[in-house]
Nucleic acid binder design. Structure first.
Lengths: 187, 187
DNA sequence: TCTGGTGGTGGCACCGAGTGCCGCTTAGCG
DNA sequence: CGCTAAGCGGCACTCGGTGCCACCACCAGA
């Protein structure tokens, strides 16, 4: 098992039992069998142990979005999100642990939203292209940010459910995009 | 001039000239004529010097929202935001400086979104009440987060404009809420 | 086999944010 | 005039994060 992976495992374990703030980097390094200095070579900050994979998700989202046809950005974004968030059953428990941490530790929630900014811009740019407008236009910007906001709501709703399986996640994504497509004025 | 106000002024000044990260708390305290320890008595963190007033905005939003009649949450939220964001001309430059910092310094952007979580829940609860549904329902949650996301887009668009006056801000708010009301599938 | 890179490692010293403790000043009051 | 209480701020400490550098393994080539 590679070092980074092992550090990630012991870190999530310690965070779950002791709490995020109560776990120092020294403990993580010790538990992972490396020096403190080496820990920081694998993860730029303590937060990144939890947030690591979000970047991969962005890359995947962008490439799927680029392939998606049609001139309706909502449909394209919906299809892209469904494609990207297709997790294997074995990954779900780890995903839930991560989401739980991000939800509960304010500092993690904060840093996660910084990562989301790239998603927002990717989505805004895509929508603008499909609409034939400027990516900096307010409507495109609102779209990009609203989609990410909706996905945060989806993950938040999903991770507190008892039956947090892949099907439930997909259904929530559908429901969220329906809301965005229809707007909020109609009942 | 009260101590907190003076610290805020010199801090925004130093942040603007040197940058946020390059300004230490020691410098802020020194420039404000207080001890470092005293600085932390007025502001729990360095970030809070910039983010301070956002909490007042939340309180105002919640109370205005409570007074707003009708069963359309979009209309209510729109009216509430227009009422709350009615700044005097003299306040606008300071507001722009703050928004610029929040936009440019990732750590500030991150912390700001943590504050926004309360706004999101307030808006979700209000929408659920008007719809007669559960505040935890996905649609209400998506609504709350999408509204805040739209407002972030508004501030972002506004603060980069040359003519960042009150009228322009109001127009952007209108446009953003129109988008949320209509949905994003229609052209 | 010796030699000279080279990449991973981690100790050490340092910085800055934030906190607990405690002694000091000063203003208000009996 | 003395007492008390509140604000102030110095001091020492913890913890996250960084720069520097010595050490060790491994591998190339002579």
């Amino acid at each position: 098992m590679p070092v980074a992976r092992r550090l990630e495992d012991v870190a999530l374990e310690l965070f779950a039992t002791q709490g995020f703030d109560e776990t120092t980097v020294d403990e993580l390094a010790l538990a992972g069998g490396v020096g403190r200095r080496t820990f920081f070579r694998y993860f730029p900050t303590k937060l990144d142990v939890v947030l690591g994979e979000l970047d991969d998700g962005l890359a995947a989202l962008a490439s799927v979005l680029r392939e998606e046809p049609g001139d309706d950005p909502v449909a394209a974004a919906r299809a892209a999100f469904l494609a990207v968030n297709h997790y294997a059953d074995a990954e779900l428990p780890a995903l839930r642990r991560r989401l739980g941490l991000i939800e509960d530790v304010p500092e993690l929630a904060a840093r996660a939203t910084v990562r989301y900014r790239d998603w927002e811009q990717t989505l805004a740019t895509d929508a603008a292209a499909r609409w034939g407008t400027d990516p900096a236009s307010l409507r495109a910007q609102v779209f990009g940010r609203a989609v990410v906001a909706a996905m945060r709501a989806v993950f938040s709703a999903w991770h507190v459910r008892p039956e947090a399986d892949a099907a439930a996640l997909g259904a929530l994504v559908e429901e969220a995009f329906d809301a965005l497509a229809r707007g909020f004025s109609s009942p």
